[in-house]
Design a protein around this nucleic acid. Structure first.
Length: 325
DNA sequence: AATCCCGCCAACCGCCGGTAT
DNA sequence: AATACCGGCGGTTGGCGGGAT
């Protein structure tokens, strides 16, 4: 693949201007495009009387001058959409941008990198994988062990400060809750709906949405099956259930077991790697995923197999293995 | 008041896939 | 089929502004 002439050389050596655009340049570009359309970007600068390369003009138009650009802060809803679509597409900013009216890929990318990544990290979510950051839990458990609280405070241990006690208790609580959660997941004869039956290796623990559904423990919330979503999150569609899916209340497909957020017409969360995801296809065909019925026995079996695979393969899951044993 | 630090964001860079020749 | 070119994309950078020291 050969390099475009536009990018092959030093623009300044060619006498082309770089850097911030002046108001005059903006006016020239806008006026020309509104009158003539952009046509071939490489021809545009000459025709419009601009001393810029075509790429620069294109970028300026698309990211700044276009009349339908929405400016200002991102709303909660937009942020939630970005998270959802990022979980679906990964860093495909242009794809994400097509779903957010008036927002450019550059803007979304910037927003993600400067703010949303940090927000997610603060919430204990890995922004790359959209999975809970297990390092936090590991740290808590390690601390718990260090403090000798694996089975509760030991006699003879040095007295703990109230902070240490709080941390140790939280770690212990988390551990117990996780144990309870795992038992529920594996032992249940009535597992909750699995949204994406076609994918087994994408999301946390290999089961998209199933996992997310159960990860209310992120905030160390009680692990209750079929529990309603925790709506206290600052992000409407993201709070409580990472894999929140719009359900069909009247369709009877989901019933109470489905976490329903009628106000949120967003697709379910899936892995950051779109490959192998049926949800991607569902979405690209512009149809919202619909909550399906209870999993079949083979699907439940797949789930258990995935668990086993995870425990065998994923070193990061060593603490889970420890708990299960 | 001066300096430093940090976050934000517009713009650039380099690569890629698609299309024309 | 090979080459040249273009548009588009994602990663990165550098300047600017505001807050902290």
């Amino acid at each position: 693949m050969v390099r475009s002439p536009c990018c092959s050389g030093d623009h300044e050596a060619e006498g082309l201007k770089k850097g911030p655009w002046s108001a005059e340049e903006d006016a020239k570009l806008s006026e020309y495009i509104e009158k003539e359309g952009h046509g071939r970007w490489s021809d545009l600068p000459k025709k419009a009387g601009l001393n810029r390369c075509g790429k620069s003009c294109r970028l300026r138009w698309i990211n700044y001058l276009r009349p339908d650009i929405k400016r200002g802060n991102f709303s909660d809803e937009e942020e939630a959409m970005i998270i959802n679509f990022h979980s679906l597409y990964g860093n495909k900013w242009s794809k994400i941008a097509t779903h957010l009216q008036g927002r450019t890929d550059n803007e979304i990318k910037n927003h993600w990198n400067t703010r949303m990544k940090k927000k997610l990290l603060r919430m204990g979510i890995d922004p790359n994988t959209h999975k809970p950051r297990t390092d936090h839990l590991n740290q808590a458990m390690n601390l718990s062990q260090l403090l000798g609280t694996g089975g509760g405070p030991h006699l003879g241990s040095p007295p703990l400060s109230s902070l240490e006690n709080a941390i140790a208790n939280a770690a212990e609580l988390a551990k117990l809750q996780l144990q309870s959660l795992l038992v529920q997941i594996i032992g249940t004869s009535n597992p909750p709906p699995i949204m994406d039956h076609g994918s087994t290796n994408n999301s946390l623990l290999g089961i998209p949405n199933y996992d997310n559904h159960h990860l209310g423990f992120l905030g160390f919330a009680p692990p209750m099956q079929h529990q309603a979503v925790n709506h206290s999150s600052p992000w409407p569609s993201y709070g409580g259930g990472l894999g929140v899916v719009r359900g069909d209340d009247n369709g009877g497909l989901c019933g109470d077991a489905c976490m329903i957020q009628p106000e949120n017409p967003l697709p379910q969360l899936v892995s950051a790697s779109p490959e192998g995801s049926t949800v991607k296809n569902q979405f690209e065909s512009e149809s919202l995923p619909i909550c399906s019925n209870w999993p079949t026995q083979s699907q439940a079996l797949t789930f258990v197999e995935d668990w086993e695979k995870l425990l065998e393969e994923d070193t990061s899951a060593s603490f889970l293995r420890e708990i299960l044993q």
